[in-house]
């Protein structure tokens, strides 16, 4: 049970529509190691890419959890693992009390009705040979949710309207639409299944700023209207701050920090989170002139051969010898604020 002051805190604008403490997804020590093979006919595994190396988090019903990090940190792989589009090496993925790791492909089909994905690239995620109406109707047809064709077409029009598109878009092809409109089609298709949980994988990253704001607003409206839960995967920290209730930061397959949104941005504890926030330029010239611009050195190491101990230690300004030995425990330093660093 949460303490009563937390319930009060949820009354403010940040927590609109987060009604309960029901856990929807519970990820426990998820690992996804991809084998690296050598040889053409006789393949032997020579190494593993540790894309996700033991992460755990919970997502509450009605919540938006932001998942941030740079390329190769494992954020997309985490999303794909939840849907079992990858076959995770180990760990538990509890959805509605059921461990998805134990389900076979047939049982997963049922689960995938409730979990949908919105992809980054609105150009490659829609079939160019299908009309928009067919694209949105396809999941309903495949899962036999709305068997009657006329009812299905009505539902398509309804979904188009929900996503801010006119009914006549159903007869168009993807190439006749702009990027923002295509992303709305992607959202309509995800909604067609009446999902509970949507994984938004860089869903607004490819859009221009004015269009991005429209789609962000649409996603927020839909969450409130349909009581949806989002895992919002993005590298854009400004959008994540705007849309998320809680935020998790990943680096090289590990979770380094997790906290309530404002807490994480106003009071970052992990050196990597601090470096990440410092690197993002803010659209305010006076403020920028006053910032220190302490820029973190070095590049992200390869996940095939990650650094020993804490994977961030080669780039970390406050690293000491102990950091090279052991990955620090992911611990709760304040209520709801988790961090993996011994120096905090």
């Amino acid at each position: 049970m949460s303490p009563p002051n937390e319930a009060v805190a949820r009354e403010d604008a940040q927590f609109r529509g987060v009604p309960t403490d029901d856990v929807l997804i519970d990820l426990k020590d998820l690992k996804m190691h991809f084998p690296v093979t050598e040889g053409v006919f006789i393949q032997s595994v020579i190494a593993h890419v540790k894309a996700v190396d033991g992460i755990s988090f919970k997502i509450m019903k009605g919540e938006t959890l932001g998942l941030v990090g740079e390329s190769g940190c494992g954020k997309t792989t985490t999303g794909r693992c939840i849907l079992k589009l990858e076959d995770p090496t180990s760990g538990e993925i509890i959805f509605h009390g059921q461990d998805l790791m134990n389900l076979d492909d047939k049982e997963m089909v049922e689960v995938r009705k409730k979990i949908q994905v919105i992809f980054q690239d609105p150009f490659s995620s829609l079939n160019p040979r299908m009309k928009i109406g067919e694209i949105i109707a396809e999941p309903m047809r495949v899962h036999n949710i709305v068997p009657d064709e006329e009812a299905r077409n009505n539902r398509v029009v309804e979904l188009l309207n929900t996503c801010g598109l006119k009914a006549n878009f159903a007869d168009r092809y993807p190439h006749e639409m702009s990027g923002g409109q295509r992303q709305r089609v992607g959202i309509a298709r995800a909604l067609a299944m009446n999902p509970e949980f949507i994984i938004c994988d860089e869903a607004v990253s490819a859009l221009d700023v004015s269009i991005q704001a429209q789609v962000v607003n649409l996603l927020e409206d839909l969450r409130e209207e349909f009581g949806l839960t989002y895992l919002f995967i993005s590298h854009d920290l400004s959008v994540v701050r705007h849309i998320s209730h809680r935020v998790a930061v990943m680096y090289l397959g590990h979770m380094v920090e997790l906290a309530e949104c404002d807490e994480l941005f106003d009071n970052p504890l992990h050196p990597y989170t601090r470096a990440l926030l410092e690197a993002v330029p803010i659209p305010d010239p006076d403020l920028e002139n006053g910032r220190a611009h302490q820029i973190i050195k070095g590049e992200i190491p390869s996940p095939i051969n990650p650094p020993s101990g804490c994977v961030f230690h080669p780039r970390c300004p406050s690293a000491h010898d102990g950091c090279k030995k052991e990955f620090p425990e992911f611990r709760e330093v304040k209520p709801g604020h988790w961090v993996a660093c011994t120096e905090v």
């Binding site: 604008a13 701050r241 705007h242 803010i282």
Partner: peptide, 19 residues
């Protein structure tokens, strides 16, 4: 229409409508 990373969110974004 740009969300700002240094500010707590106050309200909905105010996008330019249309294309």
């Amino acid at each position: 229409s740009v969300p700002r990373m240094d500010q707590q969110r106050q309200a909905k974004l105010d996008p330019v409508e249309g294309q």
